[in-house]
Design a protein around this nucleic acid. Structure first.
Lengths: 123, 123, 123, 123
DNA sequence: GTGGTCTAGACCACC
DNA sequence: GTGGTCTAGACCACG
């Protein structure tokens, strides 16, 4: 079961996108399995302290990408296969890594500084 | 003179905030010196391909934080001192590093994987 | 016994309200007599192809207006008296007629056109 | 210029649909001309006492039907030609007339009663 | 000023 | 309980 315990909402980025990406990362990491149920709009909204519509928007976007299935009155669940998982993973890694490198370069860091920073904040 | 050559606008985050953060990172990195001029609203807007109002909003926010000064009729310029620079730097680094680590952990990566990823995408 | 043969569900208006209004119009028209039974929730739901809860909501609203009575275990039935019938009738007619006239005026119709239109679509 | 003076919001029907239909009726009646400007979201919202988003939803629906054109930063305007106007008119008349006849039949009225009712409430 | 998006809360229909 | 829709208010980017 996907856990949202470590999920914290950041400022500036649309919440629904953060939810989308969080779930995608769960899929990419293999922590989420195919046909696994995801929390209902209300449950997750309550967990995150946001409006159910915000969660719905995230779920809808995932549904349009074919990553979750939802039927009215039934629980929504993850719909993913191996190849898809790999694609999601690659897409996310590229996106995230680029963003990270861009930010660190803006900070004027050398590669070694960046690595040190990562290691420092890892725990 | 601060360069905006490497600045690329990302999706999802308000453009004016991206400008604010870009300049802050320039300050934090030491690439921007005190009393250095920054491009006029019009020039930067044209450079980034955005509306002058958007740049104006960013500059205004930086002004409210006391990081830039603008005198009517004159160019705006950066106004910082050493301690201030350090504070900005620490604040940004902590924020960015935490975000990076959080994302990579969500992806189920070990510290070594994260370091490798950074190195791979550095160039 | 009130018939739901001519009842068709329209879009945009909540179904339970359409049911409420249909029954009210039946009462107003005199087609429904006092103490007449109305279909059980389940039967009507099946007849209209909607969820029993939806019918329940309609019946409840009618109950709150004192237009039907339901005793547990027994069938619900219409509970009206003559004055009440007249009131319901006047209220509905005024409402509906005004809506009709308003719509037709918006269409730029003259009274004669409106009458012709009604006559044309009557059968 | 299209006027919303006589527009009154009814209960039960989504407001945005009422706005859509009101404008369509204006188009159908010929009261609205091609390339005529329509009020901005804010102006109309304020006029009707609703939220700008509700107006926007109506405008968007009309846009998807090709009945209005809107560009960011510019005024929206009606986009209609003769044939289109006729189609809109027919569609609306059929829809409205059917609704009216259905309601009146539910009220147990004969054609003559219906006509009388219309005439009574016309002024 | 304009149109567009994000978040929120209440309601509807269904299981 | 579930997912879906409607209305509302605040914010963003643009002219």
């Amino acid at each position: 079961m996907i856990s949202f315990e470590e999920f914290v909402i950041a400022d500036g980025i649309p919440i629904y996108l953060q939810i989308v990406n969080y779930i995608k990362r769960g899929i990419a990491s293999g922590a989420v399995r195919d046909q696994e149920e995801i929390p209902s709009r209300r449950v997750l909204a309550s967990l995150l302290g946001v409006n159910p519509n915000t969660v719905q928007k995230a779920y809808r976007m995932l549904e349009e990408e074919g990553l979750i299935e939802s039927r009215s009155g039934a629980k929504s669940c993850i719909s993913i296969n191996k190849e898809r998982r790999g694609l999601v993973r690659d897409e996310l890694m590229e996106h995230d890594a680029k963003a990270v490198v861009s930010i660190m370069k803006q900070m004027g860091m050398a590669k070694e500084d960046a690595v040190k920073l990562i290691e420092k904040f890892w725990e």
